[in-house]
Design a binder for these strands. Structure first.
Lengths: 127, 127
DNA sequence: GATCTATTGATAAAAGGTAATCACTATCAA
DNA sequence: TTGATAGTGATTACCTTTTATCAATAGATC
């Protein structure tokens, strides 16, 4: 039998944080933000909830090279990310240049998907 | 005073492996290949040499999201990578669509560099 | 060849992020 | 309200990659 899922303040707080925030967040960021709603929230619960939300398809993992995984809602559609070299924050990009990408692969290679990451300085840090 | 650098069979073997191989390699791959030339080679020496070669600018680090760092020569110029979802190998791509990329960033964002990673199946694994 | 000391190799240990444990709490159907 | 049990929180354990340790080895200079 499938495990009976219960609604808890902790899960709701974690989901709310992911709803509100635009870009992908680190487990630690999520914890720091969700603690405001549920002060007793432990980091273990954040990891557990993220795992569950991933299994349920509500949340997905975003990996920036050399950094631990971040998490974001899956309902944002295909997009890529910008990583600020100053503040470390990750922002969503709206558009995608996927069109020409497949042509980059050598003959015989089969491209199923791709990742584009821009690096630089975000609006606040560039100023 | 700067540290006096000595030429050793170990360092030569590690550099040779990086010369011969096309794509970026994991420290463990480098070790496995270089051991053929210097059977006593330890993994610690691979890490030490990679660190030195990086400082000297001869080698740079390639990071595929969710994977440990790989290393490759710096003399290959600007290029990106293809990661095979089957065999896990990483291949170099020759071309780059950098042209349109800066337009992806929001107003006020300053793009300094970028990363493109294609995923799929390499020639051998697609067959 | 002798000497100095950078380098090595085996190992232990660190670092960073994640998962397991377990007693306690709180959800929810009855 | 009650009872069964999913969920929680603090902590420990874990896992993988990387670095530190240290006695032994081996380049480079004379």
């Amino acid at each position: 039998m499938a495990i009976e899922r219960r609604t808890t303040r902790q899960k709701e707080a974690i989901k709310a944080v992911l709803e509100e925030q635009a870009g992908p967040l680190l487990p630690d960021d999520i914890h720091r933000l969700a603690v405001k709603a549920v002060p007793s929230l432990g980091i273990a619960t954040v990891y557990r909830s993220l795992k569950n939300l991933q299994e349920e398809g509500q949340v997905c993992c975003v990996e920036i090279p050399g950094q631990p995984p971040r998490y974001e809602r899956t309902d944002k559609g295909h997009h890529h990310h910008f990583h600020c070299r100053n503040c470390g924050q990750v922002f969503d990009l709206q558009k995608c240049v996927a069109g020409g990408l497949k042509s980059l692969a050598p003959q015989g290679f089969q491209v199923t998907d791709h990742e584009i990451i821009l690096y630089g300085f975000c609006k606040s840090c560039a100023a």
